[in-house]
Nucleic acid binder design. Structure first.
Lengths: 135, 135
DNA sequence: ATCCACATTTAGACTTAGTCTAACCACCCA
DNA sequence: TGGGTGGTTAGACTAAGTCTAAATGTGGAT
C-alpha cells in the first residue's frame, strides 16, 4: 500500500499531520465508516484531533477524488476509499460490502429516453451467507 | 385514484383525520418528499397537524407497506408511494425520478457467491435532458 | 533566523432531521 | 357517567453535520 503523504501530494493536498492520520485509516479501510467512526478510529492513534478537522478532511478528500461519500443506509453517510466503479451490498446487519463492477451487468441503461446518465450502480440488500464452520 | 380511507382500512390502519390528510398527499405524490416536506404540504390543508404525527404516520405507512423510505441523497430520507420494484434516477437538481423495472435489466445477480440477495435496484445519477423549447 | 501571509486546526455554538415523553383528547362500550 | 384504548400534541431531547472566530502552524522571501 502506498504512502499516505505521497497520495495526498499527488492530489494537491497539503499533508498535515492530521490529514495524514485520517488518510492512514480511511484510505485503507474496508469497513465503510461514518464520519464519526473515522473520528473514533483516528483519535485512537492521534488523540488531539478535533471533530471539525475530521469532517473537513473527509469532505476535502471527497472533493479531491480520494474518497466517495455514500448515502446507502438510512442513518448516515459513509465513506469508501474505493473510487472505481463498483456496486454495493447492504447487509441486514448494517455492514456494507463492495461488489466488483464486472460481477453484475446492467443492460439497456443507455437507451433510457429523456435522461443523460452520468453514473450508476446496483444497490443490493441481503445477508452474507454464513460460511461453513460458524462456531 | 382510490379513496385514502379505504386504502388505510385495507392495510389495517385506523383512518383518523390526520392520517387521511397525510395519505391524501403522500400516496399520490410523485415528488419523493422528505418527512418535513410532507409536514409542510399537509399543513397547508390541515394546519393543526403536528410534526410528531407526520413522522409517526409516515413510519406507520412504511411499516404497513404503503410507502417505501429511500436513502438516496445525502441529506435526507424521502418517501415513495410506488412500492412496486423499480429503479431510481437522482437528478443533479436533487429531484428523484422513478424508472420502471423493465426499462433496465440486471444480469448475473443470482450468481453472486456468498450472499443471499433479498432486494436490489439500480441507482442512477444524471440530468433530465432539456426538452425542445427551453425558453 | 525572522517575518509575514496564508493555510490549518480547534472548541464550541449552531442547525437540522428525527425520536421520545408525558399530557391530553376522543371515541367506544359497560 | 366513567374508564380504557387509540391517536395526537408540544416540546424536550439526540445525533449528524456545519459554521465561526480565535489560535496555531507553515512555507517562502529576505
Amino acid at each position: 500500500m502506498r504512502d499516505s503523504v505521497t497520495i495526498l501530494q499527488e492530489h494537491g493536498i497539503q499533508p498535515s499531520a492530521q490529514r495524514v492520520a485520517v488518510a492512514d485509516y480511511v484510505l485503507k479501510t474496508v469497513e465503510h465508516p461514518s464520519a464519526d467512526l473515522v473520528w473514533t478510529r483516528v483519535k485512537a492513534r492521534v488523540p488531539y484531533i478535533s471533530r471539525a478537522t475530521v469532517y473537513n478532511t473527509l469532505n476535502l478528500f471527497v472533493e479531491k477524488g480520494l474518497l466517495r461519500a455514500l448515502a446507502l443506509a438510512e442513518d448516515s453517510v459513509v465513506f469508501d476509499p474505493n473510487v472505481d466503479r463498483h456496486h454495493h451490498l447492504v447487509d441486514e446487519s448494517g455492514a456494507i460490502h463492495d461488489i466488483p463492477w464486472d460481477k453484475v451487468q446492467v443492460c439497456n441503461i443507455e437507451t433510457l429516453k429523456g435522461f443523460e446518465i452520468h453514473d450508476y450502480q446496483v444497490v443490493m440488500r441481503g445477508v452474507r451467507k454464513s460460511a461453513r464452520r460458524k462456531s
